[in-house]
Simulated assay, not measured.
Amino acid sequence: MPMKSADLERVRALPLFAGASEDTFRTVTAGAFLHRFPAGTTLLMEGDPVDFLYVLLDGIVELEGTWNDKETILAVLRPVSTFILAAVVLDAEALMSARTIERSDILMLSGEALRGAMSSDARFSFDVAQEVAGCYRGLVRAIKNQKLRGGAERLANYLITQQVRQGGGETVTLPHEKRVLASLLGMTPENLSRAFAGLADYGVVVNGPQVSLTRPVVLNRLAKPTPLIDNHMPPSETAIGKAERERWRAPGSSSL
């Protein structure tokens, strides 16, 4: 597909590219490919060499990991976001597979060009470092969430996060089917169902993809959200640096 100036403007607005010089941005995007992939397309497999940085402009992409005939969903990305940045920087193999959930427009930027731009543009290199560091901190949050909380507590915090992201109303819409949600929360579908049932006493009422949070104070008392784990809370000056505050304001800029 031909590149549109509007698409380039969306990429330019990402924190990763916002500080790059015009020459750097032109160099990185000069050989870019814009493709429209149908739903269910495997973009890359874990273990594959990574030749491109992927920028999701439209659609939804699922990042997965597998081991010993088991698989798990690591993240579900929505526009505008980049992924596989760490592998591109290191010129290493992918640790995750990527697959489109729905028809998706994806811009593919040369990994070699990006690494060359990092060598020649100190500001761009710094922005890449900030992006990777932000993803690392996101990984630490996810690990703390998995290791320190039980299933009901993870689900409670997830629902509170969705409530904040969807405007603060009493009813939220689950953005993923429950199979995907269970995997994202590190649970089996059966454990997720039990967790939902257990939250009924905390005012959680489930009606298909619609979930009503009728006792928010009680649910918050169970969840005990903290900005040192949960990204639905406005970061404080002391707990989080400037780059991560910007990422909190623009959650679509993930660079897993």
Rank of each mutant, 00 (worst) to 15 (best):
M1A: 14
M1D: 08
P2S: 14
P2D: 12
M3T: 07
S5M: 01
S5D: 04
S5V: 05
S5N: 11
E9C: 08
R10Q: 10
R10E: 12
L16M: 05
A18E: 11
G19H: 09
A20E: 03
T24E: 05
A30Y: 13
A30Q: 15
A32S: 14
L34E: 03
L34N: 03
L34Y: 07
F37N: 00
F37Q: 13
A39I: 10
T41S: 15
L44E: 01
E46V: 04
E46L: 13
G47L: 10
F52T: 00
F52W: 07
L53S: 00
Y54C: 10
Y54I: 04
Y54K: 06
L56Y: 07
L57T: 02
L57W: 03
G59I: 06
L63M: 13
L63Q: 08
G65P: 07
G65F: 15
G65Y: 15
G65A: 12
W67K: 00
L74H: 11
L74V: 11
P79M: 09
T82P: 13
I84M: 08
L85E: 03
V89G: 09
L90P: 00
A92Q: 06
A94T: 11
L95E: 06
M96K: 05
M96Q: 13
S97Y: 10
T100H: 03
E102Q: 15
R103V: 09
D105E: 15
M108S: 06
L109P: 09
E112A: 10
A113F: 09
A113W: 04
R115Q: 04
S120T: 07
R123K: 13
F126D: 08
D127V: 12
V128E: 03
Q130F: 15
Q130D: 05
E131D: 13
A133F: 11
G134Y: 14
R137I: 01
V140I: 05
R141M: 07
R141F: 09
I143N: 06
I143K: 15
I143P: 01
K144T: 02
G150T: 06
G151Y: 00
E153R: 02
Y158I: 03
L159N: 10
I160G: 00
Q162L: 14
Q163K: 15
R165Y: 15
Q166D: 01
Q166F: 14
G168T: 00
V172D: 04
T173V: 13
L174Y: 09
P175C: 04
H176P: 08
E177T: 06
K178N: 13
K178L: 12
R179Y: 05
S183N: 02
S183V: 02
L184G: 01
L184I: 05
L185W: 01
G186L: 07
E190F: 10
R194W: 01
A197Q: 10
A200S: 11
A200G: 12
A200E: 12
Y202G: 06
G203V: 04
G203K: 05
V204T: 01
G208P: 08
Q210G: 01
V211R: 10
S212M: 03
R215T: 00
R215Y: 11
L222T: 03
K224M: 12
T226Y: 05
I229H: 12
I229C: 02
M233E: 05
T238L: 07
A239C: 04
A239E: 11
R247G: 00
W248R: 14
R249D: 11
R249W: 11
A250W: 15
P251H: 08
S255H: 04
L256M: 13
